[in-house]
């Protein structure tokens, strides 16, 4: 039985997760979940972000683990191999995911770091297409990759096999535009499980909120929900927002489609969009465009949505001033 489970995880790490990404992506695309927002520029960026790091960052990490560490610390190899599996898995899971939480959070809270992470947030849709979408330098300096490589070198390779696959599954599903967590909020007897689930791991609801183009509207919250595998870090550090709802729109409110190469290679290549954070003279962090004033069509659409809400229809019939 253990051999069978081990084989599943080995296959997940070698080809299974890649296959899952393509199957989910195909399902999302077929269901029209990207809408009309997957333009040529976005498609090129998503494909480049999926392939280029595999060709550039993969060999760099392999060099770090297979050449640099054995050369710099030859005696340290396998020194922690005596650690039992359960504790090894716990050590790897915490070391990897808490480091990624901090890496991610600092890119949001330290202004000069923001532009290295902006590419991941510029996608105006959620799904497998944008799950790997990152600036090349953000991917290259992914701190948790090196932490985990060190732990594998020290002898925790076997538990890492399981943790990496589980983490990858959770983060992929949290980015997916298929809201697998919705039944947990809709079916009453599943509510206790939902309560535990949404506080423990990243779900589409909590992670989509992080990718919303607005914050503090009750659903969207890009100022928090930084967790990748574990959402627990957001609960502990008070950066969590749980609404059990999904944002209406994603991305960055002032995004005007910076060229794919600028988003991938900034600051080496700059955007030609005037006023963009990635342009040569652009601001470090640009202020949000207030959504209700973004354009008149949006404003009309919003008013229609408000009018269509049953509770408001009932309220306005007795008190029309509620919409003013």
């Amino acid at each position: 039985m253990i051999k069978f489970i081990e084989e599943i995880f080995r296959n997940l790490n070698t080809w299974g997760l890649t296959a899952l990404t393509f199957i989910l992506g195909f399902a999302e695309f077929s269901l029209g979940l990207y809408g009309k927002k997957w333009s040529k520029n976005e498609r090129l960026l998503d494909i480049a972000c999926y392939t280029v790091p595999k060709l550039v960052v993969g060999p760099a990490v392999a060099y770090f683990g297979l050449k640099f560490l054995p050369h710099a610390f030859p005696a340290a190899k396998g020194t922690l191999s005596w650690i039992p599996f359960t504790f090894g898995a716990l050590i790897i899971a915490i070391a990897d995911d808490l480091t990624q939480y901090w890496y991610h959070r600092l890119h949001h809270e330290i202004p000069w770091l923001w532009r290295f992470h902006r590419t991941h947030h510029s996608a105006p849709y959620m799904g497998m297409a944008m799950a790997s979408r990152q600036n090349i330098w953000y991917t290259f300096f992914f701190s948790q990759t090196y932490v985990t490589t060190i732990l594998v070198y020290l002898g925790l390779g076997y538990p890492a096999l399981f943790v990496k696959a589980i983490k990858s599954l959770i983060t992929k599903l949290a980015h997916s535009s298929i809201p697998w967590d919705r039944p947990f909020y809709q079916i009453k007897w599943l509510h206790p499980i939902a309560w535990v689930l949404e506080r423990t791991i990243s779900t589409p609801a909590t992670h989509h909120a992080h990718h919303a183009d607005v914050t503090d509207d009750g659903v969207g919250y890009y100022k928090g929900n930084f967790g990748n595998m574990f959402f627990l870090w957001d609960i502990i550090f008070d950066t969590a927002h749980i609404s059990r709802q999904y944002p209406k729109s994603y991305g960055i409110s002032h995004y005007e489609g910076d060229e794919w190469y600028a988003q991938l290679f900034w600051p080496v290549l700059k955007s030609n969009i005037a006023g963009s954070e990635l342009s040569a003279e652009g601001p470090i962090v640009r202020e949000d465009v207030p959504k209700q004033f973004a354009n008149e069509d949006d404003q009309e659409e919003r008013s229609e949505e408000l009018l269509l809400q049953p509770s408001l229809v009932a309220a306005t019939s007795t008190n029309p001033s509620i919409l003013q």
Partner: peptide, 20 residues
């Protein structure tokens, strides 16, 4: 807040080792 949370994080990093 970052500094406060970072100090707490050091404890969380050490927690599985302490438990072990």
């Amino acid at each position: 807040k970052i500094f406060r949370n970072a100090i707490l994080s050091l404890f969380i990093y050490a927690l599985p080792v302490i438990l072990m």
